[in-house]
Amino acid sequence: MSAADGGRSGDARARAAQTKRDRTRRALLDAADANFGTRGWARTRMEDIAATAEVSPATAYNHFASKHTLIGHVYKPLVAALVAQADQDRADGRPLADALKDQVSALTRMAFRNRGLTAALWFAINDYAGGRPSGPSDPGDPDDPRVLAPIPDTMVGLIADGQESGEYRRYPEAAEVAALAANMVMIRSVNRPHEPPEHAAELLLTVIFGLLKPELLQDAERPFSRA
Rank of each mutant, 00 (worst) to 15 (best):
G6E: 15
G7S: 14
G7W: 15
R8M: 14
S9K: 12
R13N: 12
A16I: 05
A17F: 13
T19N: 13
R23F: 08
R23N: 10
A27P: 02
A27N: 03
L28I: 02
L29G: 00
D30L: 06
D30S: 03
A31T: 01
A32M: 02
A34N: 01
A34I: 02
G37T: 05
G37Q: 09
T38I: 10
G40F: 07
W41K: 06
W41P: 02
R43A: 12
R45N: 10
R45T: 14
M46S: 04
M46Y: 03
E47L: 03
I49P: 00
T52W: 04
A53V: 01
A53Q: 01
P57V: 05
T59E: 14
T59P: 11
T59A: 15
A60M: 10
A60W: 07
Y61K: 08
N62I: 10
F64Q: 09
A65S: 15
A65Q: 13
K67T: 01
T69Q: 15
I71M: 01
G72L: 04
G72I: 03
G72C: 03
V74F: 01
Y75S: 12
K76D: 06
L78Y: 06
A81Q: 13
A84M: 05
A86L: 05
A86N: 05
D92I: 04
G93P: 03
R94I: 10
R94V: 13
R94F: 06
P95R: 01
A97G: 07
D98F: 07
D98C: 04
A99P: 09
L100N: 02
K101Y: 02
K101I: 11
D102S: 05
S105W: 13
A106K: 06
L107N: 10
R109H: 15
M110E: 07
M110T: 10
F112A: 11
W122A: 14
I125T: 14
I125C: 13
N126E: 15
D127S: 14
Y128S: 05
P133G: 03
P133L: 01
P133T: 02
G135A: 08
G135F: 12
P136R: 13
G140K: 06
G140P: 01
G140F: 05
D143Q: 11
D143M: 09
P145S: 05
V147C: 12
P150R: 11
I151E: 09
P152Q: 07
V156L: 12
G157S: 07
G157R: 01
G157Y: 00
L158F: 05
L158N: 04
I159W: 08
I159E: 10
I159M: 08
A160R: 12
A160T: 07
Q163L: 04
Q163T: 03
S165L: 11
G166Q: 08
V177Q: 01
A178G: 06
L180R: 08
A182G: 00
M186Q: 14
S189A: 15
V190M: 12
R192G: 03
R192D: 11
P193S: 12
H194C: 03
H194M: 06
P197V: 04
E198V: 00
E202M: 03
L203Y: 09
L204C: 09
L205P: 04
V207C: 10
V207S: 10
F209I: 09
G210T: 07
L211E: 12
L212T: 00
L212Y: 00
P214N: 07
P214K: 03
P214T: 05
L217Q: 05
Q218Y: 12
Q218H: 13
E221G: 09
A227R: 13
